[in-house]
Amino acid sequence: MPEFLEFGKHTTYVVSSFSLTLVVLIINVVSARLRLASRVKRARQRLALEENS
């Protein structure tokens, strides 16, 4: 374990809590952005379809 991640006898608990938090935050950002991108794509397809018809 690198020295900057040493927290005495509680290292495992502290590092795993912060790591889990970062993972959850990243999943939140990625899933929200993917959802918006997919809705934008679908809205564009719908608009293109309307233009062609």
Binding site: N28, V29, A32, R33, R35, L36, S38, R39, V40, R42, A43, R46, L47, E50
Partner: peptide, 22 residues
């Protein structure tokens, strides 16, 4: 930041008036 992003996706899904979406 995340709720605004998700809410925009929800709003697009529910949009009936295509003019503003465009």
């Amino acid at each position: 930041a995340v709720v605004l992003t998700r809410a925009r996706a929800e709003v697009l899904l529910r949009a009936r008036d295509q003019k503003w979406v465009r």
